[in-house]
Amino acid sequence: MDEALADKPAVKRARNSEKTKAAILVAGRAEFAERGFEGARVDAIAALAGANKRLLYHYFGNKEDLYRAVLLDAYQEIRRGERALSLDQFGPVDAMDRLVRFTFRHFLANPWFPRLLGTENIENARFLKTLPDIQALHSPLVGQIKTIMDRGADTGIFRRDVDPVQLYISIAALGFFYVSNMATLSVIFARDLSAIDMVQEREAQAVQMVVDYLKTRAG
């Protein structure tokens, strides 16, 4: 009984630790996405997370290490979402439909993500290059797309001459560009691209473009 009671504070501390780390990562997303790496301030991140700055340094090290953690967490989040789709349970067309919609909706629901990626591109991917196993994080996605394409080709639905990496870049671009440029495009074309009907139209068009492309010259 005494041992069980002794364990409780340790368990509570562990839970609080994970909660604080998660809050710091969320705050880091917001600050780095809004101000870029150079403009972001650790003080602002700690304040937004409601955390002690010393704890931030304890958990994540310096500003560069925190930024790397935020970047890695962002990629891990979208990869987890893709795995949760269980695309192998669906036919090739439905699987591709679901992947395109998920990718578009992820950017739409997390506008900080395109901004964060924009920051890292401004940095010429110098932090991404230092992340261990970043290719390993993405290779299952490429393999999953190839499997869908192969299943589609085997049944005569999809063409066989498509590079899965190039295809994913196109899928991501269809959502990324829309979300990251929504404000300027809305002004240029005098349309509210954030309106639900415009968003739904864009999502449907993205799916059609990808599926129709894969069906071109099928068989």
Rank of each mutant, 00 (worst) to 15 (best):
Q76I: 11
P164S: 10
K129G: 08
E3D: 14
R217C: 01
A14D: 10
F177N: 11
R101E: 13
R159H: 05
A6H: 11
N121P: 00
I122W: 01
A10N: 09
E3Y: 10
F176K: 01
Y178V: 01
I188E: 14
A172T: 07
E82I: 14
R101A: 13
H106V: 08
A74W: 01
L25M: 05
L185N: 13
I148F: 08
R98G: 05
E120D: 15
R151D: 12
G118K: 04
L99W: 11
A218T: 06
R35A: 07
R126L: 13
I148Y: 06
G28W: 01
R68P: 01
R115K: 15
E38S: 15
K129T: 11
L85G: 04
G61N: 06
F102W: 12
M149L: 15
R41V: 02
R105E: 10
E18I: 07
L71T: 05
V142C: 00
L117Q: 04
P9D: 04
V11K: 10
L167R: 02
F90Y: 15
I169W: 05
A84T: 10
N121T: 08
H138Y: 14
L131D: 02
Y59R: 07
A30V: 01
K12L: 14
K146P: 03
D65P: 06
G175Q: 09
A40L: 09
D88S: 14
M1N: 11
L66C: 06
L185P: 02
F32A: 07
F104M: 13
I24L: 07
L193S: 09
L66H: 02
D192P: 01
P111L: 11
G50A: 04
N110D: 12
T155G: 10
R105D: 11
D212K: 07
V70W: 10
V11N: 06
N181P: 11
E34V: 00
G39V: 06
S180D: 15
E31D: 07
I196P: 04
K12H: 08
Y168H: 12
W112T: 13
F177L: 12
P114R: 04
M198K: 04
Q205V: 08
M96N: 05
Q205N: 14
Y75S: 00
G50S: 03
A4T: 00
R54V: 03
Y168E: 12
K63G: 03
E82C: 03
M1C: 09
A172K: 06
F189P: 08
K63W: 03
V187R: 14
I171Q: 02
I169T: 11
G91L: 12
R35L: 04
Q200L: 14
D7S: 14
R115A: 15
E18T: 07
A69M: 08
N124V: 08
R105Y: 08
A44Y: 10
T119M: 13
R105I: 00
R68M: 08
A10D: 08
L174M: 15
E201P: 00
H106G: 07
P164R: 08
L116M: 06
F37Q: 06
R13K: 15
R29G: 03
A109M: 02
Y59S: 07
D197V: 00
